[in-house]
Computed example of a mutant assay.
Amino acid sequence: MRPVAGRSSRAQFDAMSDIDNTTRRPGPWDLPPEQAAPEPVRARQSAPLEDKGQHPAWAIASTLLMAGFLWWITGSVIVAGAVLFGLFVHEYGHVLAMNKLGMGPARIYIIPFLGGLAKAQRNPKTEWHGVLVSLAGPAFGLIAMIPFVAIGLALKSPEWLMGAFFIAMINLVNLLPAPPLDGSKALGPVLTRVHPRLEQVALLAVGGLAVWWGLSTGRFILAAFLGIAVFSHLKRGVWRAAWGQLSWPEAGRSLALYLATAAVCAAAAIGALLPLTGGAVEPAFDMGLRFIGVGGR
């Protein structure tokens, strides 16, 4: 019996020795060494790449194309420069809000003949954050008016004041609740809070009217852009979770901010025209209406 016990103890010692002192040979079910990457490495490889933004060469080319297009449709270097400057400031307002709310670092893209786009690295955490981001562009974009109003008043130049008016109109038109404009992203969650289908009906109706407005006033590129956006949104079905994600207090604040931003943009547009009408509000209002092609005397 003792030899057997000795052999058993020896076998146990050998087994312990194999575990502690030698490297286990790969078995038939093990992955090859080159495929068995450590878990942290595979996690890093699967993480989404950060958006580096528009390539500098394409950004310069897009800006030049946009500037040339604006000069062609406005006939004024100053007004074209105002619109381009206002476009950058508007998009930078979105960027500031995105970065502040943890969606950044956000990037600005210039889209020739159409405008600009602020692109975040990740989605907003809540619908309320999305509303704030969408309204930050029009609200912040009005800052671009300041130098043009100041120079226009100092030089008594209608051209500089018209540049300020166009900047205000960029931000006001963006508040239309038509996809994919900022107004649809600010007002849409409020409508969904009432009923998920209300957003679809309202935004598609306004989008259709915006397309008709673009065609009837000769803004064919804008009409085509809005038409494609409305059609793509039409195929999405229900756009948000049932009854939305805004609470009722957040929906109230969103609606109040939307209306306040629209009122400030409209007042800024009329205010830029007041020096051209001797301070008379009604003629300035008529000038604004004639610009958007809906009447005016």
Rank of each mutant, 00 (worst) to 15 (best):
P3E: 15
R7W: 02
R10G: 07
F13D: 08
D14F: 12
D20R: 04
T23P: 01
G27S: 04
L31G: 09
P33R: 09
A37E: 02
P38Q: 02
P38A: 15
L49K: 10
E50N: 05
W58S: 12
A59N: 11
T74F: 09
G75I: 08
I78Q: 06
V83S: 05
V83E: 04
G86M: 05
Y92D: 08
Y92M: 11
A106L: 03
I111N: 05
A118S: 11
K119Q: 14
A120V: 03
P124D: 01
K125Q: 13
G137Y: 07
G141Y: 10
L142Y: 10
F148Q: 04
G152A: 05
L153V: 06
L155V: 04
K156W: 11
E159D: 07
F165H: 08
F166H: 06
F166D: 00
I167E: 01
N174G: 06
A186C: 08
Q200C: 00
L204C: 09
L215M: 02
S216G: 09
T217K: 01
A223W: 08
F225M: 04
L226T: 02
G227A: 10
A229G: 09
S232R: 15
G237P: 05
V238H: 12
W239S: 13
Q245G: 15
W248T: 14
P249D: 09
G252S: 09
S254G: 11
A256E: 04
Y258W: 05
A262D: 06
A263Q: 03
L273Y: 12
E282T: 15
P283H: 10
R290H: 07
F291Y: 14
F291L: 06
G293R: 04
V294M: 13
